[in-house]
Every structure is written in structure tokens, then in C-alpha cells.
Amino acid sequence: MAAVWPGAGHEPALPIVDAHHHFYDRPGWTYLHADYAADARSGHAVQASVYMQALTRYRADGPEALRPVGETAFVVASTAGALAPEVAKGIVGYADLRLGAGVAPVLDAHAQAGRGRFRGVRHLTTWDADGSLANPLTAAPPGLLRDAAYRAGLAQLQAQGLSYDAWLFWPQLPELMEVAAAFPALPIIVDHCGGVVRIGAHAAHRDEVFARWKASMQALARFPNVHVKLGGLGMRINGFGFDSGALPPSSDRLAATWRPWMLGCIDAFGPERCMFESNFPVDKGSYSFVNGWNAFKKLTADFSTTERHALFHGTASRVYRLA
């Protein structure tokens, strides 16, 4: 892991809604409200954030399906009274969508625990034919997005006016297109630029990966209910090597490396359907919070004020109903 220094914030007054971060409370890895707040105040005008499920502080007992509600309750309690930034102003939790119609009481429990902040669900679907890419905490069976029970759970999200965060790998994007077509009233947010994976079996075919990823993202953009988070490209699976250098990457290097991927998303979906995310603390292993947002700002230096408004806070505020 590269050592990370904070640096100075570029355009420090630009308002930001961080569309995606976590709290971790795992053996050897703790990152909670105080840690995120310190990062968020370290050089940028982060006004609010969206919390994303992270297997944190589940209930230790009670019905298995309801145990993830403990995470929503913990996030609300641990961020109570937060003024600037409004950390976890929106909360995306976990519910097992394979419960189908039976997931409805779980969603109700999340809503009650969220005290007006619960916005949707993320149930991971990450799978790849290369088994070496499987993370025991996040791996899913193949074809989950086509599973009838899972689809019935998605129907409950749509019926309750909630959103669906999709974390998958880029070869699975065609399956997500089928979901977008089947649930046109369901707001779908694609995490981390559509699952950029360039290691393992994909490492030797990086030009092909980019071409197929880009074509899939352009096809997915035809569905107006789909939005994209720009970020999450500091992970090892992305294959950029930021996590293994002796020194952390500069914001200029980050911007140059990310440019074809993030501008590819923006060109396909438009700024009004894209939003920047920190993906902290996951991406913190590669670069600082300050440098990550500096790179986003440099990437969009030539964009209009209206376009940057959407990318940095408008889209996230609208899609996650934070106003």
C-alpha cells in the first residue's frame, strides 16, 4: 500500500455531495464517522454524503433477514447531530433481494431505523468466470440479476420508491440492461464506473476490456433510469497499480489515468446522470481524499458551471432525494 499524504484542496469552495462512502468496523480495519469527517474536512467543501452498505454493525441476533438493519441504525446513531458535512444524509443499506416479496418488511424496518434517511438497497452481484477475482465478502453466484426471486425483490424496491445500487463487473453490464428494461421506474445507480476490472484473466486484454466496457456503457445509457458513479478506481481490481507504488499518485496522474474511463461515462450518460464518489475508505489505500477530489476537479476544469454543479452535487442530491 502506498503511503498517502493529504495535500491541499483545489478549488476548495466548490460544493460537493460525496455520492458513496462506507464505515468499516472489521478486524484490523476501522473507519467510522470521525475518520470520514476528518477526511471530508481536509481541503474540500463536502456538504453532505451518501452512506453505502459495508457489512458494518449488523444485529447480532434476531431474524437473519433483519440483521442488516443494525447497520442503518448504527449509521443514524453515530452521525446524529452532525452539522458540516451532513454525513450519511442518505443511507443505502443491504437487504437480501432473493427474499422476493418477503423483502418488504426488511425494507420497512430499514426505513424505520433510517429516520427519514434510508434511500435504497445494494445487494452485490459481482461475479466473474475467473474465480481468482472472487472476494469471499462480496462474491455472488453467476446470473443473479436474472434470478426470478432477485427480480421479485427489485420489484419491491420499485414499488416502495427506493433506488438500487448496482455493484458488478463490466462483463455483467448486459444483464443490468435487462434489469433496467424490466424496471423502468426503478432508479438504478451503477457503482464505480461500471465495474472496471483489468486484472486476472482480463490483464492481458486491456484494450479489448476498454472497448467492450465502453460499448456496454453506451448501450446502458439508453435507459433513462440508470445513473453512474464516477469513482472507485483506486481499487486493486482496476489494474492501475495505484495501491502498490512507493509514493501515492499525484492528482494530475489520477486525472490523466481516469480520463478515458470517466469521460467515457459522462459522454454516454451526460453530467445530469453522473455523480462523483470518494469510495472511502476503500480507495484510501491508493490516494488521499484531497488528491482524489482534486483529480475530479481537474478532469472537469473545462466543463460549464451547470455541468459541474450536476457532477459534484446536483445529480447525487436529486437521485438520492437529499434536498
Rank of each mutant, 00 (worst) to 15 (best):
H44K: 09
K229A: 12
A3T: 14
A95R: 04
M52Y: 03
G43K: 07
V92T: 10
V290S: 03
L311G: 05
Q53L: 09
F169N: 01
R206H: 11
I91T: 00
G239C: 10
H110F: 08
A134M: 13
M1D: 04
A215F: 00
S304A: 07
G28A: 13
D96K: 08
P271C: 08
G90W: 03
G90D: 04
N294T: 11
M52F: 07
L173E: 01
A82K: 01
P260K: 11
K298S: 12
T72P: 13
V103M: 09
R26C: 11
D96C: 05
R98C: 06
I16T: 06
N291M: 07
I188P: 12
V92E: 09
K298I: 07
T30W: 11
A129C: 08
H21W: 11
A40K: 10
P249M: 04
S78L: 04
L137C: 14
A268V: 06
Y94K: 08
W5V: 15
S78I: 02
L220H: 05
A203K: 13
F240D: 08
P171G: 02
L173W: 03
N238P: 04
F269K: 03
D108K: 15
A80R: 14
L99T: 02
A310P: 05
S317Q: 15
L263H: 15
H10I: 15
H44E: 00
M1W: 05
G102H: 06
G264W: 07
V75W: 11
A211I: 10
A13Q: 15
I189T: 10
A37M: 13
L230N: 03
A149I: 02
Y287F: 15
E272V: 00
R206S: 04
R198K: 07
L233Q: 05
A3S: 15
R253L: 14
F169R: 01
P12R: 15
A77C: 03
G264C: 14
I91A: 00
F23I: 03
A166M: 12
G153D: 00
L162S: 09
D18R: 11
T125H: 07
D267H: 13
A211G: 04
G28E: 12
Y24D: 07
D18C: 07
D39L: 12
P85R: 02
C265G: 05
S132K: 13
S132C: 06
R59M: 08
R206W: 12
F223D: 09
Q172V: 11
L145D: 08
L176V: 06
R119M: 11
V46I: 01
G131D: 03
T306R: 14
G161I: 02
L263E: 15
I16V: 14
G161K: 09
F312H: 12
G200V: 02
P68A: 06
L154P: 06
G120N: 05
D252R: 14
K297W: 02
L299Y: 12
S286I: 04
L32W: 12
V75D: 03
A152W: 06
G231Y: 03
S49P: 01
W293K: 14
T56E: 02
G234I: 01
R259M: 13
G9R: 14
I188N: 07
